[in-house]
Amino acid sequence: MSQAASSPTDPSVQAVVRADALRTAVATARSLVSECRVRLDSDGLLVAATDPATVASVRVTLDAAGFEHYDASDTTVGIDLDRLADVLALGDPDDLVSLTIEDSRGLLHVEHADLHYTLGLIDPDAIRAPPDPAKLDFDHAGRLTLDAAFLSRVVDASEMVSDHVTLELGAEGLRAVADGDTDTAVVEHDADPETTGEATAIYSLSYLADIVAVLPSTSVAVALGDDLPVELDYDFRDDHGHAEFVLSPRLRRT
């Protein structure tokens, strides 16, 4: 039997999860980084990372209850997300995927359907440290909840005229404005019962587009403050998974 197909010895993590849940977690983190630290403990899986330019950060959690089977000690490993995404793409979304981590050997075994793939892990100390959660706690003026499809329309319309978009939160709801040399695109969303406060900030469309591209078809909570990072967070995997993006604003033009 080959080494790739041999039985793992002394695994620190043994877990089974639906492929679509793991794909969502990987795609979410991969929208900003190609490799990251992954922590697995008794609570579940955690990915927290900042893009190389430190403009945006992402935090993804998948509760232990979101797995079909989960047994993990407190383990932190480095994973190449591009390679893992390629492996997961070989199966069907409703496949059950088995994950076994041999931390001592630096190996991640991935099994689904008739495939057994072994990935070499990355030394987590060689990967940029995740952001300090305390530094991502902002005093936002307010928030509202909207469909991910609305954010897709904001990106699509704004990219037709500019490389940035202004988000304005007020009593009437959210207004996205993109000004070009000759054209202007405006997309509006009515207020909801949670909408409070007023705020205005400008954001890079290239980053916002990368984030919006991986949002599942679900409700997204958007929090805004004057010239503060925008926060987008949502649940997935029957509320056992949670993702949060924080995107820094651009300086206002004077």
Rank of each mutant, 00 (worst) to 15 (best):
L144C: 09
D147V: 02
D238F: 07
A64R: 15
D190E: 15
T24H: 03
E244T: 15
I127C: 07
L32G: 04
P130N: 11
E68M: 10
L22H: 06
P133N: 10
S104Y: 10
H69N: 10
R175D: 12
D226A: 10
V161I: 09
A85I: 03
P229A: 11
D95R: 05
D123L: 10
D132W: 08
R175Q: 13
F236E: 02
D74Q: 13
F67S: 02
A129H: 11
H140R: 06
T28M: 02
D86G: 07
L228C: 02
V246P: 00
L251D: 13
I122S: 04
M160Q: 15
R37K: 10
D190C: 00
E172T: 15
V222G: 04
D63I: 08
R23H: 01
V47H: 02
S162G: 04
E188D: 14
D125P: 04
V17K: 00
A178P: 09
D238I: 02
A4Y: 11
A199H: 07
D190A: 15
V110S: 06
A176S: 15
A201G: 09
D114W: 10
G225R: 01
S12M: 02
Y117T: 15
D238A: 14
V16S: 12
L90Y: 04
I122H: 10
R128E: 15
L136R: 12
T75W: 05
E168Q: 13
D86R: 15
Y203R: 04
S219N: 13
A72I: 09
S248Q: 09
T118M: 14
P229E: 06
A201L: 05
A65V: 12
C36R: 00
L144N: 08
D132K: 11
R153S: 13
H112F: 12
L169I: 09
G180H: 10
A149R: 13
V214R: 00
R253K: 11
